[in-house]
Simulated scan of single mutants.
Amino acid sequence: MNGKFKNTKVLVFGLGVNQGGLGATKFFGKLGAKIRVTDLKTAEQLKTSLDELKDFPDIEYILGGHREEDFDWADLIIKNPAIKPGNKYLEYAKSKNKQIEMDMGIFLQYVLPSQIIGITGTKGKSTTSTLIYEVLKTSHSRSVILAGNIGKSVLDTIEYVNPKTLVVLELSSFQLEAFEQHQVSPKYAVITNIYPDHLNYYQNMEEYILAKKIIAKYQTTENFLFLRKGDKVTNSPDFLKNLKGQINYFSAVDLPKDFKPKLP
Protein backbone atom coordinates (compact mmCIF):
# COMPACT_ATOMS: atom_id res chain seq x y z
CA MET A 1 0.00 0.00 0.00
CA ASN A 2 1.16 3.51 -0.77
CA GLY A 3 0.85 6.81 1.08
CA LYS A 4 -2.41 7.66 -0.66
CA PHE A 5 -4.28 8.50 2.56
CA LYS A 6 -1.42 9.92 4.63
CA ASN A 7 -2.61 13.09 6.44
CA THR A 8 -6.07 12.75 4.85
CA LYS A 9 -8.74 13.92 7.29
CA VAL A 10 -10.98 10.87 7.67
CA LEU A 11 -14.25 10.92 9.59
CA VAL A 12 -15.51 7.46 10.57
CA PHE A 13 -19.27 7.91 10.73
CA GLY A 14 -20.42 5.15 13.07
CA LEU A 15 -17.76 3.07 14.81
CA GLY A 16 -20.20 0.42 16.01
CA VAL A 17 -19.52 -2.77 17.96
CA ASN A 18 -19.80 -5.26 15.08
CA GLN A 19 -16.68 -4.31 13.10
CA GLY A 20 -18.72 -1.80 11.08
CA GLY A 21 -16.27 1.07 11.41
CA LEU A 22 -13.52 -0.54 13.43
CA GLY A 23 -11.65 -2.09 10.52
CA ALA A 24 -11.75 1.18 8.60
CA THR A 25 -10.42 3.09 11.60
CA LYS A 26 -7.48 0.69 11.96
CA PHE A 27 -6.81 0.76 8.21
CA PHE A 28 -6.57 4.54 7.99
CA GLY A 29 -4.67 4.71 11.27
CA LYS A 30 -1.96 2.45 9.85
CA LEU A 31 -1.73 4.65 6.75
CA GLY A 32 -1.14 7.84 8.74
CA ALA A 33 -4.50 9.50 8.19
CA LYS A 34 -5.90 12.09 10.61
CA ILE A 35 -8.94 10.36 12.09
CA ARG A 36 -12.05 11.42 13.90
CA VAL A 37 -14.67 8.90 14.99
CA THR A 38 -18.26 9.93 15.60
CA ASP A 39 -20.95 7.68 17.02
CA LEU A 40 -24.28 8.05 18.79
CA LYS A 41 -23.18 5.46 21.34
CA THR A 42 -21.19 6.38 24.44
CA ALA A 43 -17.64 5.30 25.27
CA GLU A 44 -19.04 2.75 27.68
CA GLN A 45 -21.26 1.23 24.99
CA LEU A 46 -18.34 1.15 22.54
CA LYS A 47 -15.77 -0.20 25.01
CA THR A 48 -14.94 -3.38 23.05
CA SER A 49 -14.24 -1.41 19.88
CA LEU A 50 -12.33 1.36 21.66
CA ASP A 51 -10.12 -1.21 23.40
CA GLU A 52 -8.97 -2.41 19.97
CA LEU A 53 -7.92 1.11 19.01
CA LYS A 54 -5.57 1.79 21.94
CA ASP A 55 -2.57 1.56 19.61
CA PHE A 56 -3.79 4.69 17.81
CA PRO A 57 -3.61 7.45 20.45
CA ASP A 58 -4.07 10.32 17.97
CA ILE A 59 -7.65 9.40 17.05
CA GLU A 60 -10.23 12.00 18.09
CA TYR A 61 -13.57 10.70 19.39
CA ILE A 62 -16.91 12.51 19.22
CA LEU A 63 -19.26 10.13 21.05
CA GLY A 64 -22.84 10.31 22.20
CA GLY A 65 -23.89 12.41 19.21
CA HIS A 66 -22.86 13.87 15.85
CA ARG A 67 -21.80 17.41 14.88
CA GLU A 68 -21.96 19.09 11.48
CA GLU A 69 -18.56 20.67 12.11
CA ASP A 70 -16.92 17.22 11.97
CA PHE A 71 -18.39 16.64 8.53
CA ASP A 72 -17.12 20.07 7.48
CA TRP A 73 -13.64 19.10 8.74
CA ALA A 74 -13.40 15.81 6.83
CA ASP A 75 -11.80 15.16 3.45
CA LEU A 76 -13.27 11.66 3.42
CA ILE A 77 -16.24 10.23 5.29
CA ILE A 78 -16.43 6.48 5.94
CA LYS A 79 -20.06 5.50 6.45
CA ASN A 80 -20.96 2.53 8.63
CA PRO A 81 -23.07 0.14 6.50
CA ALA A 82 -25.84 0.23 9.11
CA ILE A 83 -26.51 3.95 8.55
CA LYS A 84 -29.63 4.30 6.45
CA PRO A 85 -29.89 6.34 3.25
CA GLY A 86 -31.41 9.74 3.91
CA ASN A 87 -29.62 10.19 7.24
CA LYS A 88 -29.54 13.94 7.87
CA TYR A 89 -25.78 14.02 8.39
CA LEU A 90 -25.20 12.11 5.16
CA GLU A 91 -27.44 14.58 3.36
CA TYR A 92 -25.52 17.45 4.95
CA ALA A 93 -22.20 15.94 3.79
CA LYS A 94 -23.57 15.52 0.27
CA SER A 95 -24.68 19.14 0.23
CA LYS A 96 -21.05 20.05 0.96
CA ASN A 97 -19.81 17.77 -1.86
CA LYS A 98 -17.91 15.56 0.57
CA GLN A 99 -16.49 12.21 -0.53
CA ILE A 100 -18.48 9.45 1.19
CA GLU A 101 -17.45 5.81 1.11
CA MET A 102 -18.01 2.55 2.96
CA ASP A 103 -15.10 0.27 3.79
CA MET A 104 -16.13 -1.84 0.78
CA GLY A 105 -15.76 1.19 -1.49
CA ILE A 106 -12.17 1.67 -0.32
CA PHE A 107 -11.56 -2.06 -0.84
CA LEU A 108 -12.72 -1.72 -4.46
CA GLN A 109 -9.94 0.80 -5.04
CA TYR A 110 -7.41 -1.97 -4.40
CA VAL A 111 -9.10 -5.01 -5.98
CA LEU A 112 -10.35 -5.45 -9.55
CA PRO A 113 -13.84 -6.85 -10.26
CA SER A 114 -12.12 -9.63 -12.22
CA GLN A 115 -10.58 -10.88 -8.97
CA ILE A 116 -13.89 -11.10 -7.13
CA ILE A 117 -16.28 -14.00 -6.66
CA GLY A 118 -19.26 -12.32 -5.01
CA ILE A 119 -22.00 -14.17 -3.15
CA THR A 120 -25.22 -12.61 -1.91
CA GLY A 121 -28.68 -13.80 -0.95
CA THR A 122 -31.11 -13.73 1.93
CA LYS A 123 -30.24 -17.24 3.08
CA GLY A 124 -27.20 -19.43 2.60
CA LYS A 125 -24.59 -16.89 1.53
CA SER A 126 -22.23 -17.65 4.43
CA THR A 127 -22.29 -21.40 3.76
CA THR A 128 -21.94 -20.90 0.01
CA SER A 129 -19.06 -18.44 0.39
CA THR A 130 -17.20 -20.74 2.76
CA LEU A 131 -17.65 -23.77 0.51
CA ILE A 132 -16.40 -21.88 -2.57
CA TYR A 133 -13.42 -20.62 -0.59
CA GLU A 134 -12.53 -24.08 0.75
CA VAL A 135 -12.76 -25.69 -2.70
CA LEU A 136 -10.63 -23.00 -4.37
CA LYS A 137 -8.10 -22.95 -1.55
CA THR A 138 -7.32 -26.62 -2.01
CA SER A 139 -7.61 -26.85 -5.79
CA HIS A 140 -6.43 -23.54 -7.21
CA SER A 141 -2.85 -22.42 -7.84
CA ARG A 142 -3.66 -18.76 -7.11
CA SER A 143 -3.94 -17.41 -3.58
CA VAL A 144 -7.52 -17.18 -2.32
CA ILE A 145 -8.98 -15.18 0.56
CA LEU A 146 -12.43 -15.09 2.14
CA ALA A 147 -13.78 -11.65 3.06
CA GLY A 148 -16.89 -9.53 3.21
CA ASN A 149 -19.82 -9.96 5.57
CA ILE A 150 -17.96 -12.38 7.85
CA GLY A 151 -17.62 -10.41 11.08
CA LYS A 152 -14.63 -8.25 10.16
CA SER A 153 -13.88 -5.42 7.77
CA VAL A 154 -12.75 -6.18 4.24
CA LEU A 155 -9.98 -3.65 4.84
CA ASP A 156 -8.37 -6.13 7.24
CA THR A 157 -7.55 -8.33 4.23
CA ILE A 158 -6.03 -5.78 1.82
CA GLU A 159 -2.45 -6.49 2.94
CA TYR A 160 -2.89 -10.11 1.81
CA VAL A 161 -4.22 -9.22 -1.66
CA ASN A 162 -2.07 -8.97 -4.77
CA PRO A 163 -3.09 -8.68 -8.45
CA LYS A 164 -3.33 -12.48 -8.78
CA THR A 165 -5.39 -13.10 -5.63
CA LEU A 166 -8.93 -14.43 -5.92
CA VAL A 167 -11.27 -12.83 -3.39
CA VAL A 168 -14.38 -14.71 -2.29
CA LEU A 169 -16.69 -11.99 -0.99
CA GLU A 170 -19.81 -12.63 1.04
CA LEU A 171 -21.89 -9.54 0.32
CA SER A 172 -24.85 -8.13 2.23
CA SER A 173 -27.30 -5.86 0.45
CA PHE A 174 -25.79 -2.96 2.42
CA GLN A 175 -22.28 -3.70 1.16
CA LEU A 176 -23.56 -3.88 -2.40
CA GLU A 177 -24.30 -0.16 -2.15
CA ALA A 178 -20.55 0.37 -2.61
CA PHE A 179 -20.64 -1.58 -5.88
CA GLU A 180 -23.49 0.66 -7.03
CA GLN A 181 -21.53 3.77 -6.09
CA HIS A 182 -18.50 2.58 -8.07
CA GLN A 183 -20.65 1.05 -10.83
CA VAL A 184 -18.94 -2.32 -10.82
CA SER A 185 -20.02 -5.93 -10.26
CA PRO A 186 -17.92 -9.02 -9.51
CA LYS A 187 -16.79 -11.04 -12.52
CA TYR A 188 -18.34 -14.08 -10.85
CA ALA A 189 -21.62 -13.45 -9.00
CA VAL A 190 -23.83 -15.87 -7.06
CA ILE A 191 -27.32 -15.13 -5.75
CA THR A 192 -28.50 -17.93 -3.49
CA ASN A 193 -32.09 -16.69 -3.13
CA ILE A 194 -34.12 -13.59 -2.27
CA TYR A 195 -36.79 -13.54 0.43
CA PRO A 196 -38.32 -10.63 2.39
CA ASP A 197 -35.70 -9.18 4.73
CA HIS A 198 -34.33 -5.87 6.05
CA LEU A 199 -37.64 -4.16 5.37
CA ASN A 200 -36.89 -1.84 8.30
CA TYR A 201 -34.04 -0.48 6.13
CA TYR A 202 -35.58 -0.65 2.65
CA GLN A 203 -38.88 1.02 1.86
CA ASN A 204 -40.36 -2.10 0.26
CA MET A 205 -39.53 -5.53 -1.16
CA GLU A 206 -38.90 -4.11 -4.63
CA GLU A 207 -36.17 -1.85 -3.27
CA TYR A 208 -34.56 -4.78 -1.47
CA ILE A 209 -34.59 -6.87 -4.66
CA LEU A 210 -32.95 -4.05 -6.60
CA ALA A 211 -30.26 -3.82 -3.93
CA LYS A 212 -29.47 -7.51 -4.40
CA LYS A 213 -29.48 -7.16 -8.19
CA ILE A 214 -26.52 -4.77 -8.00
CA ILE A 215 -24.22 -7.80 -7.76
CA ALA A 216 -24.94 -8.46 -11.45
CA LYS A 217 -26.05 -5.02 -12.66
CA TYR A 218 -22.67 -3.94 -14.05
CA GLN A 219 -21.47 -7.30 -15.34
CA THR A 220 -20.37 -7.60 -18.97
CA THR A 221 -20.92 -10.44 -21.43
CA GLU A 222 -17.57 -11.86 -20.28
CA ASN A 223 -18.82 -12.23 -16.68
CA PHE A 224 -20.81 -15.00 -15.02
CA LEU A 225 -23.99 -15.01 -12.92
CA PHE A 226 -25.12 -18.08 -10.98
CA LEU A 227 -28.80 -18.29 -9.96
CA ARG A 228 -30.87 -20.91 -8.15
CA LYS A 229 -32.97 -22.75 -10.68
CA GLY A 230 -36.67 -22.13 -10.18
CA ASP A 231 -36.27 -19.13 -7.87
CA LYS A 232 -39.41 -17.02 -8.37
CA VAL A 233 -37.59 -13.73 -7.87
CA THR A 234 -34.25 -14.17 -9.63
CA ASN A 235 -35.66 -16.22 -12.53
CA SER A 236 -38.36 -13.67 -13.33
CA PRO A 237 -38.16 -11.66 -16.57
CA ASP A 238 -38.21 -8.39 -14.62
CA PHE A 239 -35.16 -9.42 -12.59
CA LEU A 240 -33.22 -10.70 -15.60
CA LYS A 241 -33.96 -7.64 -17.71
CA ASN A 242 -30.81 -5.76 -18.79
CA LEU A 243 -28.42 -8.24 -17.15
CA LYS A 244 -25.49 -8.96 -19.47
CA GLY A 245 -23.56 -11.67 -17.60
CA GLN A 246 -23.62 -15.28 -18.76
CA ILE A 247 -26.35 -16.89 -16.65
CA ASN A 248 -25.89 -20.35 -15.15
CA TYR A 249 -28.51 -22.09 -13.02
CA PHE A 250 -27.78 -24.41 -10.09
CA SER A 251 -30.09 -26.90 -8.41
CA ALA A 252 -29.79 -29.87 -6.06
CA VAL A 253 -32.19 -31.70 -8.42
CA ASP A 254 -29.54 -31.71 -11.14
CA LEU A 255 -26.89 -33.44 -9.01
CA PRO A 256 -26.08 -37.09 -9.69
CA LYS A 257 -27.97 -39.43 -7.38
CA ASP A 258 -24.71 -40.79 -5.98
CA PHE A 259 -23.31 -37.31 -5.27
CA LYS A 260 -21.89 -37.40 -1.73
CA PRO A 261 -19.31 -34.65 -1.28
CA LYS A 262 -16.68 -35.05 1.43
CA LEU A 263 -16.10 -31.74 3.12
CA PRO A 264 -12.98 -30.95 5.15
Rank of each mutant, 00 (worst) to 15 (best):
N2M: 12
N2D: 14
K4Q: 13
K6G: 06
K6F: 15
T8E: 15
K9D: 09
K9V: 08
V10S: 11
G14E: 06
G20M: 09
G20C: 06
G21Q: 08
A24Q: 09
F28W: 07
G29H: 03
L31K: 13
A33L: 10
T42W: 11
L46R: 08
K47Y: 08
S49G: 13
Y61P: 02
G64S: 08
E68Y: 12
E69N: 12
A74I: 08
I77Y: 10
I78L: 15
I78S: 07
L90D: 04
Y92L: 05
A93V: 02
S95Y: 04
S95P: 01
K98H: 11
Q109G: 14
L112D: 14
Q115E: 02
I119A: 04
Y133R: 02
V135S: 09
V135L: 15
L136S: 06
S139V: 04
S139I: 07
H140C: 12
R142W: 01
S143P: 07
V144C: 01
L146F: 07
L146A: 06
A147Q: 00
D156N: 14
Y160S: 07
K164L: 09
L166H: 00
L169C: 13
S172W: 08
Q175I: 01
E180A: 15
E180T: 01
I194D: 05
I194T: 09
P196T: 09
D197F: 08
Y202T: 01
E207Q: 14
K213Y: 03
A216G: 14
Q219I: 11
E222C: 05
G230R: 12
D231E: 10
F239T: 01
N242K: 14
L243W: 05
K244I: 08
D254E: 15
D254K: 03
P261H: 09
P264Q: 07
